[in-house]
Write a protein that binds this DNA or RNA. Structure first.
Length: 139
RNA sequence: CUACAGGCCCGAACUAUCGUUUCGCGCAAGCGGAAAGGAAAGUCUGGACAGCACAGAGCAACUCACCGGUGAAGAGCCGGGAGGCGUGUAAGCGCCUACAGAAAGUGCCACAGAAAAUAACCGUCCCGGUUUCGGGAUAAGGGUGAAAAUGUGAGGUAAGAGCUCACGAUAGGGCAGGGCAACUUGCCUUAUGGGUAAACCUUGAGUGCUGUAAUGCCAUGUAUAGGUCCGCUGAGAACUGCUCGUUCAAGGGCCAGGGUAGGCAGCAGGAGGUAAGCAGUAAUGCUUAUCCCAGAUAAAUGAUAGUUUAGAAACAGAAUCCGGCUUACGAGGCUUGUAGCUAU
């Protein structure tokens, strides 16, 4: 599968069941004002990483504002996701992921992009740890 | 020209790169097309559409309210009438109006005032008594108030009063002229004991209820094992606002637990848009030509850079679809009215 900057239908997290599961059991990486919620799943999926975005209506009352924040998150994820996909493919791990925005101010695109580019290496690092502990438990 | 108020128009364009949703073509790679708003908003209305209901009677609730037209319909729109406000000597012009009924009934009318509805505090007048008082008549005058019993003049009277008369005002009725009508003009006649119906209410017209998470279909999947209460002395269900009434009726309610939560249709060709012509004061209608113009479901229109421009900033994101109403808002343009200044 070639790496590209596209962010198509098969890469989006759509199943309501998986979303409920993610919020119930998922772990998180905080990189204020962006928060990643992730969960490794055993299920077979058509793409190694499925991701969605959220702008809480609690923080943004108007639909226009929520749309704006979600578009920024989506665009930043699209440009910065390459290392994560590559890692998941190489290690053959399946991941579901949500990007939350937890500030009240509508951010600039530059800020969101910077924070996500910082958060994704941290996420990979966390995944590396859980892999080691799982391996230890198994042995 | 400036300020204020009302109405209308517009709601940036283009290029490049990387992306999203969808449609068409193609085996595929890919190529090509389309992609938020004037309010998409509030969910306030009217419909379309869908489901359930539709033997009957009563009650309740809600909506509307000058006339005519328009339209699928309306709490909309257009035109007209009436009333009010502003301006003006006036004519006129502009703006506003939930504009049926107060002569069916009930209620309410703060403060002030004698009194807020069938009004005697002061005053005026008469009678009795004779320094003060008592009985009566009287709405002309006084002050209060948002509002005080139809205005002015004359007659009249003890003093007064629509008590009578003249000219008016307001309301009802009649006749005549104008108008499809609301209404209006003139004449005659009757009455004149307030306001409030965005108080209850009355009159007239109308409304079955629910709402696209409607609804239909396909797929997947199981479990009702348990607890408790009620029940043929009728639980409960249907007639979907409620009651009566009618019909059915042996299982039903609650707690706990299990399964599913995927897909298709609805769902994008419509009371559709644009242009021209015709009819009409207008709203609007008709004809012809032409266009296809979002369709998601954790939910698509974005990011970056540059150019144009005085500036790109306001309010704000489709979720079944249309017609309206209301509210929010930016820079500029057009237009109407008022005020001011300058010039003529």
């Amino acid at each position: 599968m070639p790496l590209s900057n596209s962010y198509g239908r098969e890469e989006k997290l759509k199943s309501r069941k998986q979303i409920d599961l993610l919020f119930a059991k998922g772990k998180s990486v905080n990189q204020f004002p962006v928060k990643l919620i992730y969960l490794e799943v055993p299920d077979e999926m058509d793409f190694p990483v499925k991701a969605g975005v959220i702008a809480p209506s609690r923080l943004f009352k108007k639909a226009v504002q929520r749309n704006r924040v979600k578009r920024l998150l989506r665009e930043a994820y699209r440009t910065e996701k390459a290392p994560l996909i590559e890692y998941a493919q190489n290690q053959n791990r399946k991941l579901i992921l949500f990007l939350l925005f937890v500030d009240r101010q509508i951010p600039s695109y530059a800020l969101v992009k910077e924070k996500i580019s910082m958060a994704i290496p941290r996420l990979i690092k966390e995944l590396e740890k859980t892999k080691i502990t799982a391996a230890n438990e198994n042995s």
